[in-house]
Design a protein around this nucleic acid. Structure first.
Lengths: 148, 148
DNA sequence: GGGAACCGTTCGTAGGGAGAATGGTGGATC
DNA sequence: GATCCACCATTCTCCCTACGAACGGTTCCC
């Protein structure tokens, strides 16, 4: 194995994306923490807003977590008045979750915070670079099946 | 607050980077798991290889973890024969860590695995897109003070 | 030479998520 | 139409990871 020909592991995309993602998550978490929620709550609301899922089990699959986690997330959001748990009249086993107006406002605040972080993050990039980065990340996100 | 003008939170860079980073970390972890280590071990070896730190406390700061974590990581790597703990003769309180030849080989294997993942990840991107993505991520990585 | 500061290690602890067990509901089968 | 099986949400328990504090050993400063 010719080691000299390989680049440093720290310069690879997966490695840097891993570290960069951790930093991004931490910053986003810090940004939404004053709102009383964490990134997972935002993800749940985003899925709801997009109409990508309604029952908690669907939510769990979309978010890539176990059903019991969704319970806790929903508990929190319900306590904040951001989502409503309604028994599905067609199937009373399911809970049909829906965003309340307060939830939409909350989600909008999170979006605003994220947008501000974006600007801060890409400050050292040229507009063209930021644009291409955004595009490439979008491709990778859809490719890896991230909740859209 | 005019919500309609804002993009979806899921399309923001911080949000996608967070999710993408988690996936990248998971894939990288799965790739190095057969080698008996996890991403943090790779990071430690990379810092050592770059000569960016020698004492465990410096390692901790560079890696962004607590000193007690470095103990566990070093224990594992020492058991694998990848690093050596040597008392610093100048200051016998410190441990001067150094990569062994086996450690360099192990690190090279990790780099190879990461490179393979990179190719897999950027398969759906054009060479030009992949290039610009790599560049932009590099800028962000150095900007956010990621272990180089 | 004695006390304060530092380094590495160990121990205890808290937070997050996974998985199994429980209660309630719907559908199929006979 | 009654019974059994499958499904959804919830709760409970366990594990894993990282943090923070406490503890020996060592060095530096006065």
């Amino acid at each position: 194995m010719s080691e000299a020909e390989l680049p440093e592991v720290t310069t690879t995309l997966v490695y840097r994306l891993g570290g960069l993602g951790a930093i991004a998550s931490a910053r986003f978490a810090a940004a939404v923490e004053p709102l009383g929620i964490r990134p997972k709550h935002v993800a749940l609301m985003a899925v709801l807003s997009a109409g990508a899922a309604a029952s908690q089990l669907e939510l769990a699959q979309t978010l890539g977590v176990v059903a019991s986690v969704v319970v806790g997330l929903t508990d929190r959001l319900e306590a904040l008045g951001a989502v409503e748990r309604l028994r599905d009249p067609d199937d009373r086993r399911r809970h049909r979750l829906s965003l309340t107006p307060a939830g939409r406002t909350l989600l909008a605040s999170c979006t605003a915070a994220a947008t501000a972080l974006d600007a801060e993050l890409t400050a050292s990039l040229s507009p063209a670079e930021a644009q291409s980065l955004h595009r490439a990340v979008g491709v990778l996100a859809s490719e890896t099946g991230l909740p859209a």
